[in-house]
Design a protein around this nucleic acid. Sequence first.
DNA 1: CGGGGAATTGATCTCAGTCAACGGTTGTGG
DNA 2: CCACAACCGTTGACTGAGATCAATTCCCCG
Lengths: 241, 241
Amino acid sequence: MGSGQKPFPLAHRIRTLTRCDTATLDMIQHLHGREEKFSRGSEVFVAGVVAQRPLVVMSGWLMRTHILSDGRRQILGYLLPGDFMNFSLRSAAVPSFSSVECITDVVVADMTPLRRYVTEAADDDPVLVAIWTILALDEAMLLNSVARLTRQSAYERLAHLLLDLRYRLSLVGHADATSFDMRVSQQVLGDALGLSVVHVNRILMQLRREGLLERTKKKIALPFPEQLSRLVDHSIPRVSV
Amino acid sequence: MGSGQKPFPLAHRIRTLTRCDTATLDMIQHLHGREEKFSRGSEVFVAGVVAQRPLVVMSGWLMRTHILSDGRRQILGYLLPGDFMNFSLRSAAVPSFSSVECITDVVVADMTPLRRYVTEAADDDPVLVAIWTILALDEAMLLNSVARLTRQSAYERLAHLLLDLRYRLSLVGHADATSFDMRVSQQVLGDALGLSVVHVNRILMQLRREGLLERTKKKIALPFPEQLSRLVDHSIPRVSV
DNA sequence: CGGGGAATTGATCTCAGTCAACGGTTGTGG
DNA sequence: CCACAACCGTTGACTGAGATCAATTCCCCG
């Protein structure tokens, strides 16, 4: 990333997760297409529609949502900077199961250039290897959320989610060892965990009383992440060395 | 499938889900490698290991499991005939997050031939298109289980799972419109839904009393699937026409 | 025929949902 | 700059869903 400018979140994540030389990272930076802004509350993808263009999150938080016929909103997952949206390597005629909605103001970048590059690359092209690794990790993260949700205790589920968010943000340099920016309402946390707002609040307070969580403004701190990790058995999908 | 023998489950599923000519299906049949048997309770894949060969389920049921440090077992999903295991198109060095264990006696087939074929195929090769569609649907099914688990009521969760299983079995000809073989203990259902055995049993009894479920031996029947579907808002990831 | 796992049922208790009230913050328009 | 509204966080009281413990019965399978 020669110029000293901040790396794009995707490149940052790849650098953190894989052994990948500077030339490859530079190439990935260059394969970002034009950027587009979305404002808080707007929808980037709508459920039921087929085959849209691939994007990557440059900044901001989004959520994958599914609306039930009685109006309840389920949140299937969060999309953070550096995450792909709709980046299957070849598109299939499968209508998307969920919508994607902006939690904050968001900037995304079109990833058609990268997809084209990867489709035509040789098997051992370092860019292709990096992208495959990221996609494999993304899938593991999805299994990880299934694991989180089959846990019965609200305490475990919530702590698990917070640890996950901190870890994922740290991959793109948006979190340090213990704290990160948290611009998500307790309502939205609840919808992602299948818990009521009130109960989310109670558990958060309990974590605070126990000294395992601190809050200032819009910042969350987990002062003892390893201890909390052990407590709720949080494990991270990794790349093997 | 010229000879009139029963089609392999994967081919059956592809035929049900996609518009795909006989030659393509035949080709897919031929790209199945050698078969291997596993007996009830044995592990096919072990968590934490990297890059194993791709398999497809020929017969029997399996589950993807994750063991917590306190010994609780979480079930992340079921694998039914026609389902892929570990079939990423190019392997990445990501250790698997979960183990795969046999619920019943199982036969699997090695899918290395198919993977090799697909890796080298042209972009519009019908085999490749079919496989991409199946993989996209598999991913949608995963999101679908996240959706199931964020539903708060045990009644909805359980009914949703039963409808899902019936649908998936119907794709490979193992279920008719209302009933299917169910060789899964209530304990295992509970582990997949984050519910206790006792409660699973109570909900099953309730469904029976309501006339929405019948059981004979190891067979489950859902006499009014559409009604139940509407009741719990069950939707199926589909291929668009 | 006996033994062990699975299903069923009851009793009890706890976790988490619901309803309701109140304070703090933001932001928006007058 | 203020006033008001809307949203969010916090807390209490109550209720209900689901966990846990325990006892029986029902099947399979050897």
